[in-house]
Design a protein around this nucleic acid. Structure first.
Lengths: 247, 247
DNA sequence: AGATACACCGTACGTCGTACAGAGTACGGG
DNA sequence: CCCGTACTCTGTACGACGTACGGTGTATCT
C-alpha cells in the first residue's frame, strides 16, 4: 500500500507530528500558538495577526514560531480549522430541518469570526473540524436515496451559500461602520441613494425601476434572516424536488 | 434634493472626474493605468500587481500613479469592474434559459481571470459593469410576478453560487499545478487518498463511506459542467417552484 | 508678468515576512 | 562518564512593498 506522504500542513492539523529524539523539549506546542493567533484575530482582525504579534503573545521570539509552523500561510490554514466550532448535533430530525440549522450555523460562525472570510483557502479543506461539518451534512441525507456524489455537491452548495451570504452581510456591516466615521456609503438605503445618482435609466432600466420602488431601502436589518432564509429555501426546495423525482 | 456626495472610488469608476482648470494636462488617464494593471494581473497574477510594476508599464514613476488613484486598494476596486465582461445579451428567452447562461458566464469570467477571486470586495458592488449584470438578471425575471426584492435576492444567490463554484474549481486547478511541481495534493483522487489516511471511521462515518465508495475519485474533469449544472439546477428548480406557487 | 494650482518624480521611511547563523541544551553512543 | 549530535531558541539583517513628503517644472488665470 503506497501511502502518499501527507502534506506538512495536513499532518500538523491532525496532530501527526513526529516526536523528536534529541535536543531540548519544545517549550510550546502548535495548539498554544494557534490559540494565540486566533485570540489576536478575534480582537484586532486579520491585520493584527503578525508573526511578531503572535510570538509576543506566547512569550517567544518571532523566529521561534518557525519551529512550529512552516510559514505564515500555514499558520493561517491551521487557524481556520481550529477556529471552526462543532457542527450542530444530529438528532433524528428530517433532513430539511437539520440542513437549515446546519447552514445557518455555518453562516453564523463566519459572522462571529469575520476574519475567517479574509483567509483565502488555496488548499482544499482538509481540517478535522471542516470535515466533521461535511460528514454531518452527508449523514442528514442518508435516507434520501441520493448518491454520495450528489450529497457532496449539495453540501458544497450549501456551504457556498452560507459563505456568500456571510460575506455580503459582513461587507454591509463594515461599510456601515466606516460610514459612521467618514460618511461614505452605509446601509442599503445609502446604497440605493448612490445608485439613483449614478444610473442611466436607459442603460439600466430594471435596476432603475428597482431603485425607484425602494427595493434597497426596504429592510435595514441586514442580519434579519428574511433574505437568508429566502435564498436558502430556494436551494432546499430544489433539493426536495430532486429527492421527490428520484422516488 | 440633498445629494449625498459620491465616494471618490465610485466617482472614478463612473468617469465623474472633475476636470481641472490650472496646470499641465494629465499625460495619462485612469483607463490606461487600469488597463495596464489588468494586463499584469492577467499574465502574472495579483501578486504581480505592484504600484511600481504598473507605473513601469505605463512609463511613469511609481508615485505618479497617486495622481490618478487614491491608493492601491482603490486601483484594485476599479480594476475589478473594468475587467468584467458584458453580461450575455437578453433575447426573448424564458427566464430559466437566460439565467442559466448568465450564471455560467459569471463563473466563466471568474475562471478566466482568477485574480478577480483574490480581490476581497469590502465595498458593495457599485461599478457600471457589475450593475449591468444585475440589471439583466432582473430583466430576465420581469414577467414572473416576483417582487423587486425577491428578484434581487435571486440574482444575489446566483452570483454567490457562481463565485463559490469558481473559487472551488480554481483552487483545485492551482492545487493540481502545485502538485505537478512538488507532489502535494493534486486532483480529487489524491484528495480522497489523503482523507482515507486521516479519517477515523468512528468520527466520520458517512464521509468514510463516501471515500470508500470512491465518490471523490469519480470525475477528474473539474471544469466539467456536471457538478456546476447540478447545483445550479437546484437553485433554478427552487425558483421555478416559487414562481409556480405565486400563480 | 506674476501668481497659482497642478503634474510628475526622487528620496526616504515604516512594516512585515523570513533567511541565516550562532549559542545553548538534552539525549544517545562509546 | 563524556562527547558528538540534533534540536530549540534567538538576534540580526535583508528584501519587498506601500506611500508620505517635498521639490521642480509647466500651463492657465488675473
Amino acid at each position: 500500500m503506497a501511502q502518499r506522504a501527507l502534506p506538512p500542513v495536513v499532518a500538523r492539523m491532525w496532530g501527526r507530528e513526529t516526536a523528536s529524539r534529541h535536543g531540548p523539549r519544545p517549550s510550546l506546542d502548535l495548539g498554544r500558538i494557534v490559540e494565540a493567533a486566533i485570540g489576536i484575530a478575534d480582537s484586532e482582525g486579520l491585520e493584527g495577526v503578525r508573526m511578531s504579534s503572535v510570538a509576543n503573545r506566547v512569550g517567544m521570539a518571532t523566529m521561534s514560531l518557525y519551529r512550529y509552523v512552516g510559514s505564515k500561510d500555514e499558520l493561517l490554514t491551521v487557524m481556520v480549522d481550529a477556529a471552526i466550532p462543532e457542527p450542530p448535533p444530529v438528532d433524528g430530525r428530517p433532513w430539511r430541518g437539520y440542513l437549515t440549522a446546519w447552514t445557518r450555523a455555518n453562516r453564523d460562525m463566519l459572522l462571529e469570526r469575520p476574519w475567517l472570510l479574509g483567509v483565502t483557502n488555496r488548499t482544499p479543506p482538509a481540517g478535522p473540524r471542516m470535515l466533521r461539518w461535511l460528514d454531518r451534512a452527508l449523514a442528514a441525507l442518508d435516507d434520501t436515496g441520493l448518491s454520495f456524489a450528489e450529497r457532496i455537491n449539495i453540501a458544497t452548495a450549501l456551504t457556498g451559500y452560507a459563505s456568500s451570504q456571510a460575506h455580503l452581510t459582513h461587507s454591509m456591516i463594515s461599510a456601515a461602520e466606516a460610514a459612521a466615521a467618514d460618511g461614505s456609503i452605509g446601509g442599503l438605503a445609502d446604497y440605493g441613494d448612490i445608485l439613483g445618482q449614478v444610473l442611466d435609466p436607459a442603460d439600466y432600466p430594471d435596476l432603475t425601476a428597482a431603485v425607484r420602488a425602494n427595493a434597497f431601502g426596504a429592510n435595514e436589518e441586514w442580519i434579519d434572516d428574511a433574505d437568508f432564509t429566502f435564498g436558502l429555501d430556494l436551494l432546499l426546495d430544489g433539493i426536495e424536488a430532486l429527492i421527490a423525482r428520484r422516488r
